[in-house]
Design a protein around this nucleic acid. Structure first.
Lengths: 142, 142
DNA sequence: ATCCCGAATTAGAATAATTCCAATTTCCGC
DNA sequence: GCGGAAATTGGAATTATTCTAATTCGGGAT
């Protein structure tokens, strides 16, 4: 459709390394599968609602716990727009997010092939970036 | 010191246009002066504390109101790091933020001269970006 | 298979940042 | 100086998230 929305889930062969040290409980599997099922960047509460359909006993606290476990094991990315509630994203490729102001929809936006931070930022040498989050808002040419 | 921390406040001649339609009450002036006084990216609560020294009757709600007025009139920028509380920044130049994980200190980081979004992002044509926020975390080569 | 123990889950309470509300107060234009 | 719209105020309300303490789960050792 549009150039947004390239998508990449973990290649099957790299899953084991990501799972290292993460006990894959049924709640975590459920939460992960909810996030993998659609790529619409659900909030914790969205995930909670969807998870309950197949696992009615799951609690919101558990959803938060699972999300934090999945994020810290890099199976899922956490996405923030200003002070809105966090959203979760199954696309593990290096990318950032664009929120359509008209609809609220969030689209993945990929970096151009090969660009490095130093190409567009005046970063003092020796700076090690451990985390980067780029969030855009605007309108699409409909 | 380091290449971070370029700083630019509004040029005196463009202030009038920014102030257009903004009633500069004494509370707003106080809040603005607190933010201008240091470039340490204070939170709303920091601003509240500092403002109270010279204006003991100011309320937290007013600080929030003033901040929102100043931000929407582009006299101040709002800075977000994940879900931390918002911080406020007097640097109006196009820039982004780096948080030193060791100290928590936030540094301004400028974009390389002349870079455009399309240079490093795969943006579908026709996309109009109205807001961009890039937040970095990491360590400085001390 | 059973026992043990640390880890995960749960419900609900607690916290923190921010926003809302309704009652003044301020202050600009007449 | 007066009227009215906008701003300020204190406190209550809201919202997302985290914490707590009790319970349950599940994998490894026996």
């Amino acid at each position: 459709m549009i150039a947004f929305d390239h998508h990449s889930s973990p290649a099957p062969e790299e899953l084991p390394s990501l799972l290292e040290g993460l006990r894959m409980t049924k709640q975590r599997r459920e939460v992960l599968s909810v996030i993998l099922a659609e790529r619409d960047h659900p909030t914790a509460n969205d995930v909670f609602t969807r998870s309950k359909e197949r696992m009615p006993t799951i609690s919101l606290a558990t959803v938060y716990n699972c999300l934090e476990a999945l994020v810290s094991h890099k199976l899922v990315k956490q996405v923030n727009f200003e002070r809105e509630s966090s959203r979760y994203c199954p696309n593990l490729s290096d990318h950032c997010h664009f929120q359509d102001e008209k609809t609220g929809t969030i689209h993945d936006v990929v970096f151009k092939k090969g660009v490095k931070l130093e190409d567009f930022l005046e970063l003092p040498q020796g700076t090690e970036i451990s985390h980067l989050e780029l969030s855009l808002k605007g309108r699409i040419g409909y």
